[in-house]
Structures are given as structure tokens and as C-alpha cells.
């Protein structure tokens, strides 16, 4: 009952021969060695396994890998491929939006996907999105602040770019 499949993760194509019952999160972690994505509940509530599927945040524990053949999957490893933290990761650090770091990759991918779709969210909207995932350490406030700050910085950078292009 082994199935051949091809997955595209962080822009890289992988050939796999696996049981179809393997969930995407297990395949990412244990077949592809991308252990940045974590497993927290395996029933879609905690969000530790959140990755982007074609740009949208999704629970990797509720998807069989076979289902997302042909999709573009992005994991936390894609945020800082060269080791330099991106602006979102930097904001999490500055606001102390992580303690043990276990929920963090899921929170980052949730925020990354959300901000790409909605670059101008209100703080309340961010809070509602953060409520998608569980964190047991922070009390959430600093996670919301980090994402809010990142959104502001991205907007400011965009404005600056616009102003620059007008000159």
C-alpha cells in the first residue's frame, strides 16, 4: 500500500514512496526532515502544524500528503532560508512573542499567510486570526503585537517604496 507521489515544498520538488495514510505534517517532518513544523494535537485545533498550502494557512495534520500533490507548500523553513530572520520573525523576537517556541512556527505561518492576503488588518482582526492557534506560554498579547507591528512596518515600507518610485 505504498504510493508514489511528488510534493513541492518551499519551492523544492520531492519524490516520495509512502503510505497514503501519512498526514502532511508527518511527511514534512519525518520523510522530508523539515522538523520546523510541529505536531500539537492531530485534530486541527492547536495549529502548531500550520503551513501554507497555495498561500493559505492550513492545518498540516488534517491533510493527507497525497491530497496536496501539485500544490505549493510552504513551511517555516522558507521564512529565513539564509539564516537571517525575516521581518515577521524579527517582530516576534522584539515583542517576546515566543517563549518555549513550540507554537511559534505555526503562528508564523498563520500570520505570514494572513498578512499576504490582508495587509491592512485591525488589531482586533489580528487577534481573531491568532485565536486560530493555541499558545500555552505567552497569553497571546505579544504575538498579536508582533504581527501588528510587522503589518505596520510592511505598510510603511510599501509607502516608502511608492514614494521612491514617484521620484
Amino acid at each position: 500500500m505504498i504510493q508514489l507521489m511528488e510534493l513541492t515544498v518551499n519551492g523544492e520538488r520531492h519524490d516520495l514512496a509512502i503510505e497514503p495514510r501519512r498526514t502532511l505534517v508527518d511527511v514534512l517532518r519525518h520523510d522530508l526532515g523539515l522538523t520546523g513544523t510541529h505536531v500539537g494535537c492531530e485534530h486541527g485545533i492547536c495549529g502548531a502544524c500550520t503551513v501554507l498550502v497555495d498561500g493559505a494557512p492550513a492545518r498540516a495534520c488534517l491533510i493527507f500528503a497525497a491530497q496536496v500533490e501539485g500544490a505549493e507548500i510552504r513551511t517555516v523553513e522558507s521564512l529565513s532560508p539564509e539564516g537571517e530572520l525575516n521581518d515577521l520573525q524579527q517582530c516576534f523576537s522584539e515583542h517576546h512573542g515566543l517563549q518555549c517556541g513550540f507554537c511559534t512556527p505555526g503562528m508564523l505561518m498563520l500570520a505570514e499567510g494572513y498578512l499576504a492576503e490582508e495587509p491592512e488588518p485591525t488589531t482586533e482582526e489580528i487577534r481573531e486570526v491568532v485565536a486560530s492557534n493555541l499558545c500555552r506560554c505567552t497569553g497571546y498579547q505579544t504575538i498579536v503585537e508582533a504581527i501588528d507591528d510587522c503589518a505596520s512596518r510592511r505598510r510603511a515600507a510599501f509607502q516608502e517604496q511608492l514614494a521612491g518610485s514617484r521620484v
Binding site: 498550502v53 494557512p57 486570526v129
Partner: peptide, 9 residues
């Protein structure tokens, strides 16, 4: 309906 990552799938 659930939360964002549930609604996307």
C-alpha cells in the same frame, strides 16, 4: 466557522 486555517480548507 472554526478559524481561518479551517475555513481555507
Amino acid at each position: 466557522v472554526g478559524h481561518l486555517p479551517i475555513r481555507t480548507r
